[in-house]
Write a protein that binds this DNA or RNA. Structure first.
Length: 320
DNA sequence: TAATCGTGGTC
DNA sequence: TGACCAAGATT
């Protein structure tokens, strides 16, 4: 509520300029002191994203959550729009071959998500009368839905009270409450407890809180260049109060890509996506020079159900 | 638990 | 320029 855009908030120092160490126990902000400023900030700065509009419905929310798993909003937007136009209900997607989902997925990456979304739509049609289920446990039982996505759909689509703990929220809490720049590699029990404790009591407000903290992490409390001057809770932030200490502990491992099986898989699948029908092995062989790795990548795609082998050395996207 | 799974933008 | 990062799930 109060405008906390204090000009005293300074940009974090470059990594390496570690300040003096401080006691590990900075006073934890009271939940009530955080809710107002963050929710007000969200009210003023939330992006107008299609899956946040009422007309998106639970299916729209669910599709967006699948696509946004590890993929930036800017790249999801056009695919999301086409997807919902083509398959406005789960049953519409379930009625098509899984390969069509893989094709429409385009270059969003991690194409197994497309397969799982198709499988989830099929399960929704068969087990839930074609409606995206409301209960967290039912959502969690669907293919491709884990702890985060189940909470996100239950919260954003149905207004329920669930702790939504994605990479944005984890980073916000690590800084705001934990006083450290980044959260641990894997989600911990302590993080879940903090998330539960900070969750507002009322359903609707809790749902807005989840979206607001995610948005804060996406727009202000970013990984590379946090804009503390624009943060509604900078005055309460343990990390800022400690002088923006640099990341301690082991370096976060970065994933390689060039030369890996993933790159080969990506190239193979791109050929099949862009082809109308079955493709001869020869065309797949052209995407990678090394035959052993090439064969391994193709085998793994078949094993994943992303590619269907036919007779005579032909391959295609899965029809069944 | 840690490794695996795509792709493209940013600094 | 290449390392880092992006609304995770699965095994």
């Amino acid at each position: 509520m109060t405008a906390t855009t204090a000009s005293t908030a300074s940009a974090p120092p470059p990594a390496g300029a570690a300040p003096a160490s401080q006691p590990a126990s900075a006073p934890r902000p009271e939940p009530g002191a955080l809710h107002g400023p963050v929710l007000q900030w969200f009210h003023e700065h939330a992006r107008d994203l299609p899956w946040r509009r009422p007309e998106a419905g639970p299916w729209g929310v669910m599709v967006s959550e699948f696509m946004l798993q590890q993929t930036p909003v800017s790249r999801v937007l056009p695919v999301y729009t086409q997807w919902l136009k083509r398959w406005p209900r789960p049953a519409d997607l379930a009625a098509e071959a899984p390969g069509e989902a893989v094709r429409a997925w385009g270059r969003l990456g991690y194409p197994r998500r497309a397969l799982r979304l198709h499988a989830a739509a099929t399960a929704i049609k068969e087990r839930h009368n074609g409606d995206v289920p409301k209960r967290h446990a039912q959502l969690l039982a669907l293919p491709g839905i884990g702890e985060y996505t189940a909470a996100a759909v239950a919260s954003f689509a149905y207004g329920q009270r669930h702790a939504v703990l994605d990479t944005n929220v984890r980073r916000v809490y690590a800084r705001l409450v934990g006083g450290t720049e980044f959260p641990p590699g894997a989600t911990t029990a302590v993080e879940r407890r903090v998330a539960r404790e900070l969750l507002p009591d009322e359903d609707a407000e809790a749902a807005r809180w989840g979206a607001a903290t995610m948005e804060l992490g996406a727009l202000v409390c970013t990984a590379r260049k946090p804009d503390c001057g624009s943060c509604p809770v900078a005055a309460l932030c343990a990390w800022r109060l400690a002088g923006h200490p640099a990341h301690a502990g082991p370096p976060r491992r970065t994933q390689s890509y060039a030369g890996t099986d993933r790159q080969v898989r990506g190239r193979l699948l791109a050929v099949l996506r862009d082809a109308d029908g079955p493709v001869p092995q020869q065309r797949l062989d052209a995407v990678w020079h090394e035959p052993v790795q090439r064969a391994r990548a193709l085998d793994s795609l078949v094993s994943d159900g992303l590619v269907e082998p036919l007779a005579d050395g032909l391959y295609r996207l899965p029809q069944t």
